[in-house]
Write a protein that binds this DNA or RNA. Structure first.
Length: 636
RNA sequence: GCCGAUGUGGCUCAACUGGUAGAGCAGCUGAUUUGUAAUCAGCAGGUUAGGGGUUCGAGUCCCCUCGUCGGCUCCA
């Protein structure tokens, strides 16, 4: 006897064990056709694998994220099967599903070319058409090891050896292809309909740069061709939002060969930059931050003292002045420590919030550079908060609120991560333990969702990071809050307590935007270059129809400019359609068209970026409207 | 840094298997005085990223350097 309980609570009984697929077929053909994988007693389960005697069954289709991963993972197997057939001698590593697709890592002497991808994809289509059954088998550890040793699959052997003693070792087979895999998978290769191999790239075995470099082929798959096409079209759209492309088109910034990773900001970019800082200073003023500025280069001995010399030297730039070694600052903290040391401090001063817009230089790996997102010279909106240990939770909470307040202005969504002790660290295990649990408490008390990112902390302390996605859904760290018990020791920072004794303060390092540069890159992609009025480099463009309207337009522009609006009059000898087209491509929020009718009426014809031509408006009213939008930092 | 791809005027691209660099846009000049996403004409602009090599001859082939793009985290 076998019993199956469906999601609606109904119970079905069978004389002997059944597969989820068999049950699905009884329920409806459509369900059977669309189900990708099952969930049996809460565990993902192959559709063609017999269920235990008492099974709570749920059938998942492609819309379900877990099922989608199974579908992509099965496509990765199909690709590996094709590669194995086409390139004998290839060794397989791993092939998981990822966001929006899958990959598989291969070790092969020959390097894959784009033509190879076409060939592989064609073979995959053949194998899918053959509709081979995908079957699960469980093997003993020894047998599994023997099997993969015999096949020369060194990576699989290594994977099995790394599995815990009691782990069940399962294999999946389709035709002549066997792979070590926890599963589950779709029932047969014919279920895989629309797939595309998108790129090939190098990847280290186990993500470790000391391990061999493998070739990773990326792809994606869907049950319907239309879904695949839609996805590819979406990617094309996303590329149009790329901040590197828009940065050039909107004349915001550039990068030169002479300064890799060191952006040059053009006047339009600096307008936005300054608006960001204006908002930043307003919000930090509300929270009582004191702004400081510290030097660009400082004596080597300072960096030895801070620990950067031992922990960060490979990313630093050096110079020598009067035979004395100096370093270009990669972080602002040591400078802030010097400021703290210039006077005595009392517990009454705490929390002492010092902020600094500091330009730092870090020699990032050349292959890691990416537009404004990863650069070698960037401005951090840094702050160092000196405080009593008892003030940690409240201060960290305050920073979280400040960041949230700032990001809301832009309508940005973010995710939080808690990064723990890295391999290279200063201090003791106990200090790290205390600091990490303090950060956890703050997050949990506020009921904030977060993910733990093991080993990604700074060398001086654990941190909470805010991640924002770019147009291609790549995550970038923006704000970060880092607890630090090390700098106070290193710099022998003290304050006088209530008891009249000297004590050690605690420091929180934090950035809100993160790097202004990266944040600007994020914003360009977030708004697709169509900035809200308060950020737009040019807020209003005045477009005369003919020369005889120039005088009126000049006066109008002067008036708006005097009111504090960034306005430009396009007095070139061009037709109105041409001027409008250009203003549209520049994504200017408002255009004022002026011809005979407007001059006579003393008005202007308004055209907006979102609504198009809206007809004549009263200039005074328009001015008030724009000023209000600027003041409230209206979105959209 | 590593793997792969790539690099032609400010931008987007062209130049058959090696045969002495072309176009559009932008720029400049002139004509046109224009009503909601490109008026017409002319002019100017590149030692093809840099260096070396092969060749009678290199943007095209080879080597080195530099830049750029994608990836190198998401653990069968």
């Amino acid at each position: 006897m076998a019993a199956v309980i469906l999601k609606d609570g109904s119970r079905r009984e069978y004389p002997q064990p059944v597969t989820p697929l068999a049950v699905a077929r009884e329920l409806s053909q459509r369900l059977a056709a669309e189900a990708v994988v099952a969930k049996v007693n809460g565990v993902l389960w192959d559709l063609n694998r017999e269920m235990p005697a008492e099974a709570e069954l749920e059938l998942l289709d492609f819309e379900n994220p877990e099922a989608r991963n199974v579908y992509r993972h099965s496509t990765a197997h199909l690709m590996a099967q094709a590669v194995r057939q086409l390139y004998p001698g290839v060794r397989l590593a791993i092939g998981p599903a990822i966001e929006d697709g899958f990959y598989y890592d291969f070790d092969l002497d020959k390097t894959f070319t784009p033509e190879d991808l076409v060939k592989i994809q064609a073979r995959m289509a053949e194998l899918a058409r053959a509709n081979q059954q995908i079957e699960r088998r469980v093997l003993s550890r020894d047998k599994a090891l023997a099997l993969f040793r015999e096949q020369g699959e060194d990576y699989k052997v290594e994977l099995i050896e790394a599995l815990p003693e009691d782990a069940e070792i399962s294999l999946y087979q389709q035709g002549d292809f066997v792979d070590l895999c926890a599963g589950p998978h779709v029932g047969s290769t014919g279920r895989l309909k629309a797939f595309k191999l998108t790129s090939v790239a190098g990847a280290y075995w186990r993500g470790d740069e000391h391990q061999p470099m493998l070739q990773r082929i990326y792809g994606t798959s869907f049950p319907k061709a239309s879904q695949l096409e839609e996805h590819l079209a979406l990617l094309e759209e996303a590329k149009k939002r790329d901040h590197r492309k828009l940065g050039r088109e909107l004349d915001l910034f550039s990068l030169s060969e002479e300064g890799p990773g060191m952006p040059i900001y053009h006047p339009n970019g600096v307008v936005i930059w300054n608006e960001l800082l204006k908002l930043w200073r307003e919000e930090h003023g509300k929270d009582g931050y004191l702004e400081i500025r510290t030097p660009q280069i400082l004596n080597k001995r300072l960096w030895e003292r801070s620990g950067h010399w031992d922990n960060y030297a490979d990313k630093m730039y050096f110079t020598e002045v009067d035979e004395t070694p100096f370093a270009l600052k990669p972080m602002n903290c040591p400078g802030a420590m010097l400021w703290y040391l210039t006077s005595h401090h009392s517990y009454r001063d705490f929390p002492l919030r010092s902020a600094e817009l500091g330009l730092v230089h870090r020699h990032e790996l050349s292959g890691a550079l990416h537009g404004l997102m990863r650069v070698r010279a960037f401005t951090q909106d840094d702050a160092h908060i000196f405080m009593l240990p008892s003030q940690i939770e409240e201060e960290v909470g305050g920073v979280i609120e400040l960041v949230d307040r700032l990001y809301k202005v832009f309508g940005l969504e973010y995710k939080l991560e808690l990064s723990t002790k890295p391999e290279k660290f200063m201090g003791t295990e106990e200090q790290w333990e205390a600091a990490t649990s303090a950060l956890m408490r703050v997050l949990e008390k506020r009921g904030i969702d977060y993910k733990i990112n093991p080993g990604d902390g700074a060398f001086y302390g654990p941190k909470i990071d805010f991640h924002i996605l770019d147009s291609l859904k790549r995550g970038w760290q923006c704000a970060t809050i880092q607890l630090d018990f090390q700098m106070p020791e290193r710099f022998d920072l003290t304050y006088t307590g209530e008891d009249g004794q000297e004590h050690r303060p605690v420091i929180v390092h934090r950035v809100a935007y993160g790097a202004i540069d990266r944040f600007l890159g994020i914003l360009i992609e977030h708004f697709a270059g169509a900035f809200p009025v308060w950020l737009a480099p040019v807020q209003v463009k005045i477009l005369p129809i003919a020369d005889r309207h120039h005088e009126y337009c000049r006066k109008l522009a002067a008036k708006l400019q005097k009111a504090g609006i960034r306005v430009q009059a396009d007095l070139r000898n061009e037709k109105i359609g041409f001027k409008i087209r250009q203003a549209e491509t520049e994504k200017v929020p408002y255009m004022l068209v002026v011809g005979d009718k407007e001059v006579e009426a003393g008005k202007a014809a308004l055209r907006t970026r979102v609504e198009g031509d809206v007809g004549q408006v009263d200039v005074k009213e328009f001015q008030e409207r724009v000023l209000a939008e600027i003041k409230t930092r209206k979105l959209g």
